[in-house]
Write a protein that binds this DNA or RNA. Structure first.
Length: 905
RNA sequence: GCGGGGGUUGCCGAGCCAGGAAAAGGCGCAGGGCUUAAGACCCUGUCCCGUAGGGGUCCGCGGGUUCAAAUCCCGCCCCCCGCACCA
């Protein structure tokens, strides 16, 4: 058999029969969406995981009787595609290598992709091919690309809507910036320092006693201002610069950095030594403290001027000690530490005074004081928590004119791909989406409690992320996309133009049919169709669309919306999925907010992380050509559950492929008609029915791994057992088994289904649990036989020479006692039954044992053994004889109902 | 640092939310079958002990609750992911 030809055959037939094209009907609808992929490369098996989970669920719901809409589009807005086009144009060797080697793009094709348009065109065709090749049940009439003119109209409408609601604001914020490229730098544009984050230092202005020269000390612990005893500068050259109308004493590096944040003017260069011993005034505290020199001061960190708090900063403590200066540390934070905290911290981590221990001690103390520390009596905030006071003092300093902010990287150096050291720049007059808006957040938080999050522990993650979300810059200077309609200098950033586009799938069908054009898509049109606002006659007039069409679109929108499930990779939790919620909550009435979100994990390759830009990468194209669609689908569903990561291992794929082949031929070999129904057949039906139940339960929770495990492997085990036991009527479950597997391996199932039927199994009803099919008797009998075989085999270990096995069943009285015990009438029985009373001890031992062991309760043990004699003999290689007399008495006595005595000879 | 997830038998990975199996499944390994042979496939075994169906020790570490804990509680150690203006 050739799975690949089966797959393309059914894909073609499905497409021709249009069975996945969804139209409103009187059935219950189910609208499932997966985030459209970003097309700066070919789709890979990571995409395949997310899409396959979605597709299996879409197929499952379809078979459950829902009218399922599963659409797809392509995301191309933003900068990476432009960047890629430039790199290809430049014939960048690394890019050419990655795209030919990992993205499977033939070199001749790749070399042509020198413009964003060609890249979009090329990869969208490839993506379409790949997705169709996996057999996704997508309604392809609704496909679109985010640079379509109609899409831009939609985005413009969305942004006007947000703006009118006051959710778009202007502001400034710090970004990582390359002074050479004069552009913000993204992670993948970095040579070094990807880990670095932007840290906000508080700058505290200490003024020189004799004039107004400012010593701006940068600190992460503004609350320690009460403990300042001196300030430190490095014995080196500094500069004096004009900053905000003041004269600041700064390192040369700090001056450079500051020049990107605010207007600064270099006044003169000075030598630190000239300031040694001069006095400065500590703001708020109004204490005069001296300036000292210290080598540990880093000119390239923040301002290059630091304040000294020996009681709470191990470096300061050690430096003062080293200088032999008699300066008394001032303790201003209380924890459980006695004495001087900095000193204690140094002791705690090892005592040696060197850079490493001081670093460790600093970290230790910072952590401790931040979490459990309280401000001491000699401060303005006695008794308050350090964690709270920190912010209060920071704000107070700025408010009173003694403070400022300085941004710095947490790790250094941070180097751009061009080789230049990056710095932090504050971008001004930027457009933001006002996610920090309290009421907006509140609405989202409240709604989270109502919606379904899969897996459920992600609810907590979402709550936290909503709290944490700050305003987001939503516009850029560079990239593909839609211009901000009220400020055409700016392009709407790509995470912001992809938040409510699920609406667009409903419009896209009409657009692709040519019924709806960009020129029709005016504000009134969207307002009416999406929000139900406006007058139909008026809307028809300004949009130049017929009233019928407008009404139809409105109706279809209301039929399909809201989104019932958005299923996505976990990388989108802290960004897209949040924005998706925020924008829905802001724009739509509550009944149109999304119902559920599901999150799945990544895929690695033989234990290695995949990377689009560095490799390794396995494209869907390659996976399909190597393993085929159904094998890949089954594998990726099985590889991991929920958000845990899956590891793609070719060895396992191969094994799975042969299992599928076995399944395929097993099916074809067992098509023949049923013979008489036996106890074993009843067992098969009963057990299968249990699996049907569990598979349904698993799918309802989107546990595809569990579902596949049950529907394929567990059933396979049943079938193997059944055949080994001599079962002849496998066809009893085959139809249902095929249906059970259709969401996962639709092509093979469709092929096998058509050996007997003319319908599409993709549209059949999914098997449901049927209580009546549970057959406890048949299950018990099977358990009994297998237990007996197991026991005989166990004993065979000790008597490998045995030729025969003698079986003796438990004495009659034991069955009587068991019955009575079950009915709770054991006491009565013992009273009435003379024989049992005689056996007092024996009876109580027996009762103890059956309470401990699970008793298989079957009716006629002898009949069962006789019926299965052939099987037992075949399994054990022993001759089975029912002859109590040949079984030694002590063994016979040990027999209990359901577990006969056996004796090997 | 903050937040989320996790540490299970050689490996991967269920089970733990609803406490009562040496602990599913797969891989690997060993033995057997099949085959001219290899591969594939099928069967059996895979913590330790045991000449009778049994016993013992196990689920990051250390405590606790319980007749009973991988499963509940407390403390500790370690690992992974996110922290943005970027898709």
């Amino acid at each position: 058999m050739d799975f690949k030809s089966i797959e393309s055959k059914w894909q073609k037939i499905w497409e021709e029969a249009k069975i996945f094209e969804a139209e409103p009907s009187d059935k219950l609808k189910f609208f499932i969406t997966i985030p459209y992929p970003y097309l700066n490369g070919n789709l890979h098996v990571g995409h395949m995981r997310t899409f396959t989970i979605g597709d299996s669920f879409a197929r499952f719901m379809r078979m459950k009787g829902y009218n399922v809409l599963f659409p797809m589009g392509f995301h191309v807005t933003g900068t990476p595609i432009i960047g890629l086009a430039e790199l290809i144009e430049k014939r960048d060797p690394r890019t050419l290598e990655v795209y030919t080697k990992y993205h499977d793009v033939p070199l001749e094709d790749l070399l042509k992709l020198t413009t964003p348009e060609r890249i979009v065109d090329y990869f969208s065709k490839e993506a379409l091919k790949a997705m169709k090749g996996v057999g996704y049940s997508i309604d392809w009439r609704r496909v679109f690309t985010t640079t379509d003119p109609e899409y831009k109209k939609f985005i413009e409408w969305q942004f006007w809507n947000l703006k009118n609601k006051g959710l778009i604001v202007k502001g400034s914020h710090p970004v990582r910036y390359c002074p050479n490229d004069q552009n913000p730098v993204e992670d993948h544009d970095l040579l070094m320092g990807e880990e670095a984050t932007i840290v906000e230092y508080t700058v505290i202005k200490f003024k020189l006693e004799e004039d107004d020269l400012v010593f701006p000390c940068a600190t992460l612990r503004p609350e320690t201002i009460y403990g300042v005893t001196n300030i430190w500068i490095k014995p080196a050259k500094y500069v004096i610069a004009k900053v905000d109308g003041e004269r600041w004493f700064l390192s040369r590096e700090a001056f450079e950095k500051l020049s990107h944040i605010k207007k600064v003017e270099l006044l003169e260069e000075v030598d630190a030594k000239d300031f040694l011993g001069k006095l400065v005034v500590v703001p708020i505290v109004n204490r005069k403290v001296p300036i000292f020199l210290a080598d540990f001061v880093d000119l390239d960190n923040a301002t290059g001027v630091v304040m000294s708090v020996p009681a709470h900063a191990p470096f300061d403590f050690a430096a003062l000690k080293n200088l032999g200066l008699k300066i008394e540390p001032i303790v201003i934070i209380k924890t459980d530490i006695d004495g001087i905290p900095a000193e204690a911290a140094i002791k705690e981590v090892g005592g040696e005074i060197n850079f490493e221990t001081l670093e460790k001690a600093t970290k230790y103390l910072y952590k401790k004081e931040f979490h459990v520390g309280k401000m001491a009596e000699n401060t303005d905030y006695a008794g308050m928590k350090v964690s709270e006071v920190k912010q209060i003092i920071h704000d107070r300093l700025i408010k009173e004119g003694y403070g400022d902010i300085f941004y710095e990287f947490s790790e250094k150096p941070v180097v751009c791909r061009c080789g230049t050291k990056c710095l932090v720049k504050v971008v001004k007059d930027q457009w933001f989406i006002n996610y920090s808006n309290f009421e907006w957040k509140k609405k989202v938080l409240d709604y989270l409690e109502e919606m379904k999050i899969i897996p459920d522990y992600y609810l907590e993650e979402f709550r936290n992320k909503v709290e944490w979300l700050k305003d987001k810059a939503c516009a850029r200077r560079k990239g593909l996309g839609t211009k901000l309609p009220w400020d055409k200098e700016w392009l709407i950033e790509s995470l912001s133009d992809s938040t409510i586009y699920m609406v667009y799938y409903i419009l896209a069908k009409f657009i692709n049919e040519g019924k709806l054009k960009a020129e029709n898509m005016v504000k009134e049109f969207f307002d009416y169709v999406i929000l139900g606002i406006g007058d139909l006659d008026e809307v028809s007039k300004v949009s130049k669309l017929s009233k019928e069409l407008i009404e139809q679109i409105r109706k279809e929108f209301l039929y399909w919306y809201p989104v019932d499930l958005r299923s996505s990779g976990k990388d989108l939790v802290a960004n897209h999925l949040l924005f998706f919620l925020f924008h829905h909550v802001a724009i739509f009435p509550k009944e149109l907010w999304p119902k559920a979100i599901a999150v799945n994990g990544y895929v690695s390759l033989e234990g290695q992380k995949m990377s689009k830009s560095k490799g390794p990468l396995l494209t869907i194209k390659k996976a399909l050509s190597t393993y085929g669609a159904d094998v890949s689908r089954l594998y990726i569903l099985l590889a991991a559950e929920y958000d845990s990561d899956a590891d793609w291992r070719s060895k396992d794929l191969e094994n799975l492929a042969s299992s599928l082949k076995r399944f395929y031929s097993l099916f074809l070999e067992n098509l023949k008609k049923e013979e008489e129904i036996t106890m074993l057949d009843r067992w098969l039906i009963s057990k299968f029915n249990r699996i049907v139940k569990e598979t349904n339960e698993a799918m309802e929770k989107l546990q595809t791994r569990r579902a596949v495990n049950l529907a394929f492997f567990e059933v396979m085990n049943l079938v193997k057992h059944y055949i080994k036991r001599g079962g002849k009527n496998l066809s009893l479950i085959l139809d249902d088994w095929i249906k059970l597997l259709t969401p996962f391996i639709p092509h093979i199932c469709e092929e096998l289904w058509h050996t007997k039927h003319n319908s599409f199994v993709s549209l059949e009803r999914y098997p449901e649990f049927d209580e009546k099919k549970i057959d406890l008797e048949a299950e018990m009998v099977e358990d009994y036989v297998m237990r007996l075989v197991e026991d005989i085999k166990e004993v065979m270990k000790f008597n490998p020479e045995a030729k025969e096995v003698y079986i003796a069943f438990a004495d009659k009285w034991k069955y009587k006692v068991l019955e009575a015990l079950k009915d709770g009438k054991l006491k009565d029985l013992m009273k009435d039954d003379e024989e049992l009373r005689m056996k007092g001890k024996e009876v109580s031992d027996f009762v103890k044992r059956i309470l401990k062991e699970k008793v298989v309760n079957v009716k006629d043990e002898e009949a069962i053994v006789l019926e299965n004699k052939d099987f037992i003999e075949a399994e054990t290689g022993l001759k089975v004889l029912i002859d109590p007399l040949k079984v030694p008495e002590e063994k016979r006595k040990a027999a209990i109902p359901g577990r006969p005595a056996i004796f090997l000879k």
